[in-house]
């Protein structure tokens, strides 16, 4: 409960940071948003509509009041509410992040476990060598290489865009039509692989470290001494305990994918919240930037809290007061 109550000041802090973003703009924020061709009347109108001519504390109170009503403001370039733009983009980002996470865990878990079991073997050196290279490889370069190779050279996957919504694809599948689901997967494959592979490099190293530590524990030696088979010791005793680390890593990775989505979504023109943020920055549409940053940071903070809480639930030795 104490841990959950700590989220409140963090969320308040996030809203203060996002509120202040617009006020960090040198000079007049409204003039900066409208560009050099704006007339004084247009600037005055935007100042008024954004409430920038009010005292700072009043602006903040009205900002918090709006947030509590789910109002993230109005886009100045797309003439839509920021909430509706985010509501469209966020599910796409979550879809991409979840699939990337699946790619990362499916690759990293066996790789990390095998590296720990065959520690210091040629397999371990090769796997961890690849992981080190994967960690050092910028995600946007990997994405660029994938577009160039798989999309433009081999024409295996589309280089940009999104397939049909997942609900529609599943509905079609129930009617025996595989087409929409295939289109969905072909569109998401490259962005998810790009994010997932980089994530797998990080996760596999962490899983390996956790497994090596667990495999050196007394209870593993006891289990072996009892005559349990190596497979049983590995899966029933070692991996179950190493999973604690995996849960933490999944939480960290989700945050990493939210950050990475900003880059990957731009490369693959994936209509998620990352691309929405970058486009808003390029168009100097600061209400949208504020809204996106607020939502991503809030999501990140909540996921971190869930990781902490699930860590405590999974590990009886840790109990938050």
């Amino acid at each position: 409960m104490k841990r959950i109550s700590l989220l409140v000041p963090v969320l308040l802090g996030i809203s203060i940071v996002t509120f202040l973003l617009i006020h960090l703009i040198p000079g007049n924020p409204a003039a900066a948003m409208l560009g050099t061709n704006a007339t004084p009347a247009q600037i005055a109108r935007l100042n008024h509509s954004l409430g920038l001519n009010q005292p700072l504390w009043l602006q903040f109170l009205s900002y918090i009041g709006r947030l509590l009503h789910g109002n993230l403001g109005q886009s100045i370039t797309q003439y839509q509410s920021v909430a509706s733009l985010v509501a469209y983009a966020l599910p796409n980002t979550v879809e991409l992040a979840v699939l990337s996470l699946v790619v990362a865990v499916v690759l990293a878990l066996p790789l990390g476990v095998a590296s720990a079991v065959w520690r210091n073997s040629p397999f371990d050196f090769a796997a961890m060598g690849f992981a080190q290279v994967g960690i050092s490889m910028p995600v946007f370069w990997l994405g660029t290489l994938f577009v160039e190779f798989f999309a433009l050279d081999l024409h295996l996957f589309p280089s940009f865009g999104i397939g049909p919504p997942i609900g529609q694809a599943l509905g079609a599948l129930l009617q025996g039509n595989l087409g929409p689901l295939g289109s969905l997967f072909s569109h998401i494959a490259l962005p998810a692989l790009t994010l997932g592979l980089t994530g797998a490099a990080i996760v596999s190293r962490m899983v390996r470290t956790a497994m090596i530590e667990v495999l050196g524990q007394d209870y593993i030696r006891t289990a072996r001494a009892k005559g349990l088979s190596a497979t049983k010791v590995l899966w029933r005793h070692a991996l179950r305990n190493a999973l604690l680390v995996v849960v933490t890593v999944i939480g960290l990775q989700f945050g990493y994918f939210l950050g990475g989505a900003v880059i990957v979504e731009t490369i693959f023109a994936w209509p998620g919240i990352g691309r929405l943020t970058v486009n808003a920055i390029l168009a100097r549409d600061f209400p949208v930037v504020q809204g996106c940053v607020l939502i991503i940071a809030t999501l990140f903070a909540v996921v971190n809290l869930l990781v902490d809480v699930s860590y405590a639930v999974l590990n009886p030795k840790i109990r938050y007061q």
């Binding site: 802090g13 990493y256 991503i296 990140f300």
Partner: peptide, 9 residues
């Protein structure tokens, strides 16, 4: 609070 923001964002 700062750690709640992905660095690149």
């Amino acid at each position: 609070i700062v750690l709640s923001f992905p660095v690149i964002l």
